[in-house]
């Protein structure tokens, strides 16, 4: 039973990783090949979200056993005993990628807002968001 659960766990983990990399491919296609600026920005948000999920997955700790799932990286007691600390070290997920992702999300928000403002301005000035026609600078 435990072995079956572990196999299933590995299988699901691999599917997750595969779909993340597939997602990277799709979003890069969207950014590099779609003509509309809005669709490029949507693909950009998908891309950065995929990167963030990838970072979270890195902090994930292989499921020690089905009876002992990983726990959040928070010590719940104010005066932890040594058993608490051993349990924490053995089972808690890595908190650092979550801190990184928090920073990356905030930065991504600022960049996306700025790009949307620029797209709006492009639409006002050029009357289109098709990058094949927003090509006044060349040569």
């Amino acid at each position: 039973m435990v072995r079956r659960m572990n196999e299933l766990n590995t299988f699901l983990f691999n599917i997750l990783l595969f779909s993340l990399f597939f997602n990277v491919g799709i979003s890069l296609y969207g950014i590099f090949a779609r003509p509309s600026l809005i669709k490029k920005i949507i693909a950009l948000t998908i891309f950065s979200d995929t990167a963030n999920v990838l970072a979270i997955i890195v902090g994930y700790r292989g499921w020690p056993s089905p009876e002992q799932p990983p726990i959040p990286p928070v010590i719940t007691s104010t005066e932890p005993t040594s058993e608490d600390l051993i349990r924490f070290i053995n089972r808690a997920v890595d908190p650092l990628p979550q801190a990184l992702v928090l920073t990356a999300i905030v930065i991504g928000l600022a960049v996306t807002l700025f790009l949307i403002f620029l797209t709006l301005q492009v639409y006002r000035l050029y009357g289109t968001t098709d990058v094949r026609r927003v090509a006044r600078l060349r040569g």
């Binding site: 950014i31 620029l118 006044r136 600078l137």
Partner: peptide, 21 residues
């Protein structure tokens, strides 16, 4: 100016995200 900024900004955001990966 707006055209140059969006061209720079869009691919610049991709570049920094790639660095994050």
């Amino acid at each position: 100016a707006i055209e140059a900024a969006i061209k720079y900004g869009l691919f610049g955001a991709v570049a920094t995200t790639i660095y994050f990966i």
